[in-house]
Amino acid sequence: MLNINTLARPYAKAAYEFASAAGQVDAWSAMLALTAAAVTEPAIISELANPKLTREGKVAFLKQMCEDNIDETFGNFLRVLGENGRLTLLPTVQEIFEAVKAEANRTVEVEVQSAFELSAEQLQTLAAALSKRLDRTVEPKATVNPALIGGLHIRAGDLVIDGSIRGRLNKLAEALKS
């Protein structure tokens, strides 16, 4: 069976290439976010699952739901997805589109967990250091996790840096067990 990412990737890349060439990357990003959110709503899911509705009917329904917020070219994109029975892939297409956009812009979203709230200056200093290490523009998303006790837990894609006291205690416990 095919992986959902495998099915969604060509649509996301094509959408990004078109949006980039047209200078509408942010607009397409917003339209994808809207339609991806729409196809996860229970009422819309049940309507799209209706066997009496043709593929064209499903596309027309979705376009009607979002008509004030999508343009004609995006409507054509939805039509292609619908013709291939791929409207339910929209959340994954949107996720991959955003990843391709971030890669093209050389940006990375970094999740920073700390035991205590970080100041804006601390976040800025951390972002600058991570930007230098990752060779990308870093967009930090800070959250507070008191279970860390102290220090930071940083996740940037596949890279994880655990500088928390909880992480160090876990490593010490593992070392003592072996």
Score class of each variant (00 low, 15 high):
R79M: 12
V39R: 08
Q122H: 11
I70M: 10
L172I: 14
D158L: 00
R166Y: 03
R86I: 05
S20Y: 06
A8D: 08
I4F: 09
G163D: 11
S46R: 11
G157E: 08
K13G: 02
C66G: 08
M65Y: 07
Q64P: 01
L32M: 09
T40C: 12
K58R: 15
L62C: 08
G151K: 03
V108C: 03
A156K: 01
A30W: 01
T137F: 02
Q94G: 12
L78C: 10
G82P: 14
T73P: 01
V110N: 07
E83V: 08
S20A: 11
V110W: 00
N5F: 10
E174G: 05
G57D: 11
S178Q: 15
K132S: 14
P91L: 09
K63I: 13
M31K: 10
K141T: 12
A129F: 00
P146D: 04
N145V: 07
I4C: 03
L123N: 14
L62D: 09
A147M: 02
A21I: 03
T35M: 14
L87W: 09
G150D: 13
L118P: 06
A99P: 10
G82D: 15
A15W: 03
R106F: 04
R79A: 10
Y16F: 15
E47C: 03
E17H: 13
F18Q: 05
G167R: 02
G163E: 09
S164M: 02
A128G: 13
I165D: 06
S20Q: 15
L53M: 13
L172F: 10
V100M: 10
S164I: 00
E67M: 05
T92L: 05
K13C: 05
S178K: 14
G57H: 13
G57K: 14
V39L: 14
T137R: 15
L130G: 06
K58E: 12
R136E: 00
T54R: 12
E121G: 12
L159F: 00
G23Q: 02
S119M: 05
T92G: 03
A60C: 05
N50T: 04
L32Y: 08
E121D: 15
D26S: 13
E83Q: 15
T6H: 13
Q94D: 15
G57V: 14
A120M: 04
F116Y: 09
W28Y: 02
L169T: 05
N69D: 07
A120I: 08
P42I: 04
I96N: 06
Y16P: 06
L148H: 02
L159T: 11
I70P: 05
A15Y: 06
E139S: 09
L123P: 09
Q24T: 04
G163L: 06
P42M: 03
V80Y: 04
V144Y: 04
E83T: 10
A22V: 00
R168Y: 07
A175T: 14
L2A: 10
Q124C: 04
L62P: 11
V100G: 06
V110P: 05
M1R: 13
E41F: 03
R155I: 00
R106I: 02
A49P: 03
N84P: 07
A127D: 07
R106T: 04
V108D: 00
I96Q: 12
V59S: 07
E117T: 10
T125N: 15
E139Q: 10
A129L: 01
A38G: 12
E121K: 11
Y11K: 05
K177Q: 11
Q124L: 03
